[in-house]
Amino acid sequence: MDVFRLHFDIDGGSFASAGNASVEVKKTLRQLGVSNAVIRRCSIAMYEGEINMVIHADGGTADVEVYPDRIVMVLEDHGPGIPDVELAMKEGYSTATEQIHNMGFGAGMGLPNMKRSSDDLKIETKVGVGTKITMVVRL
């Protein structure tokens, strides 16, 4: 089986279109015959990543690769970076603004949800440079 690849540019300025890439991934995985449980995990992981890039990093890119045995999602941005990854991984910890909270975001569940939804989560981040997150969901 060939590797199936999807690439998205995530628009940082728009909360209205946030989630479009995740919905597209979901649709594609369904067409590829991936199980509902795996689709759900990928959807959650992708959506949280997408929202994080919109909230914190003024957008970024998302690359999704579907292999016969796994799905790999790479989210990359040139945002502020994460100064304390361990703290950011804590449920309920958020640096989002009041305005973001009022929209229903900033519950401090983004990274924890991404970790819970994937079999492997790797965070490469540098303050002032950006963040690259690689998530693997095994089929």
Binding site: F15, A16, A18, G19, N36, R40, I44, Y47, E48, I51, M103, G104, F105, A107, G108, M109, G110, N113, R116, S117
Partner: peptide, 24 residues
């Protein structure tokens, strides 16, 4: 009403009750 919370916990086939009204 916290979208990440709903995202991670609501199940397929659930009716979702919320006061959030935006596109997200």
């Amino acid at each position: 009403d916290l979208l990440s919370w709903v995202m991670g916990r609501a199940q397929s086939g659930d009716v979702w009750l919320t006061i959030m009204s935006n596109q997200n």
